[in-house]
């Protein structure tokens, strides 16, 4: 088909429109309204699609190179579990996830709205986002913290009527103020995709060691609720007294199998500080994390959190 002037004119107009949209991005641009409107229109359809295909997702859950350790552990289970009816197991598993979420909310006195993940952003979009089935009609607002039974999941980026988009902690543009357990050392934690998260402490004198656990902190100027477990340190760089202290962090949450999450709609009156962290595991024991990503069994054991030897579960080999 030969190019006509009309074809080129149409192309130029469309390209200019796209570039204008890109240039107008920001808090005052049309992008946010467009996203809210699209969420209002497509959100209900996505919810229906997600619930209709949930049996398929459940069937495929856990099959991936990230979950090889889980698969090995599961093969040791007895056959009776595999023969049990899959949908009732999944229901039990999700009840377990909700249980863990409510426990963490109770410990920290967070007022939460529970929601389910119905869509996830593609990796080739370079952004780490997820869509949940709660929105402005449920009292959610942009900026609210999102957690699950394991710890910090992210914060709300866009809110529509009945769905919202969560920016996950491992997104490279994500930052949160954090504090080391049992101390007053505060710093910032940033996402790095599948690589371990980056930690930068405010004080060069901070004493850090691998295995230290970090929780969110409201004093570092963040808008997050305080006291939410983020992860444990993997590797610490620099020495005490150097200008800056950097470390890498393995998050507690397994981002490849998010299902039930809670949005903190009301912060607790007082900062829970370290009370939400689980009791420190004894050396050699594997910490348990409740996820429904595996095809059977409600609790999957994470690899033991041995400092500096085990990669994070979502680390791509």
């Amino acid at each position: 088909m030969r190019d006509s002037r009309r074809t080129r004119a149409v192309l130029v107009v469309l390209l200019l429109a796209s570039l204008t949209l890109i240039a107008l991005n920001g808090n005052s641009g049309p992008g946010r309204e467009l996203r809210s409107a699209a969420g209002a229109v497509f959100g209900p359809v996505q919810r229906v699609a997600a619930s209709a295909f949930r049996p398929i997702h459940n069937f495929f859950g856990g099959i991936g190179k990230n979950d090889q350790a889980k698969i090995d552990a599961l093969e040791k289970e007895n056959d009776a579990l595999r023969l049990a009816e899959r949908s009732s197991q999944y229901a039990q598993c999700r009840a377990g996830e909700l249980d863990a979420l409510l426990r963490i909310a109770g410990l920290g006195q967070y007022t939460i709205k529970a929601a389910q993940v119905i869509a996830v952003g593609p990796r080739q979009g370079f952004a780490w986002t997820a869509e949940i089935d709660a929105g402005a009609l449920d009292g959610l607002k942009v900026g609210m913290t999102v957690i699950n039974g394991d710890g910090l999941v992210g914060r709300l980026k866009t809110v529509s009527g009945s769905t919202s988009t969560v920016l996950l902690t491992i997104d490279p543009s994500f930052n949160v103020g954090a504090r080391v357990e049992k101390s007053i050392e505060i710093g910032f934690v940033g996402g790095e995709g599948t690589d371990p998260m980056q930690v930068q402490m405010l004080s060069g004198q901070a004493v850090l060691k691998p295995g230290d656990r970090l929780v969110t902190d409201t004093r570092a100027g963040s808008t997050f609720a305080g006291g939410i477990p983020i992860g444990s340190l993997l590797e610490v760089r620099g020495t005490v007294g150097s200008q800056t202290r950097y470390a890498t962090l393995k998050p507690y949450v397994n981002f490849t199998s998010l299902d039930v999450v809670g949005v903190i709609v009301l912060d607790p009156r007082t900062d829970p500080r370290d009370s939400v962290l689980p009791p420190k595991p004894t050396p050699g024991a594997a910490p348990v994390s409740v996820t429904c990503g595996s095809p059977s069994v409600s609790v999957a054991a994470n690899p033991p959190a041995a400092p500096s030897t085990s990669p994070s579960p979502s680390h791509t080999p």
């Binding site: 992008g31 952004a127 986002t129 866009t158």
Partner: peptide, 27 residues
Amino acid sequence: PTRGAVIGFAGGLLLDVVPPADGAVGR
């Protein structure tokens, strides 16, 4: 090509705004 460009623009705009999209709208 003419209709293809329009369809591409519409489809791309959909991808940019349908949740859980994030980042600059219009890419």
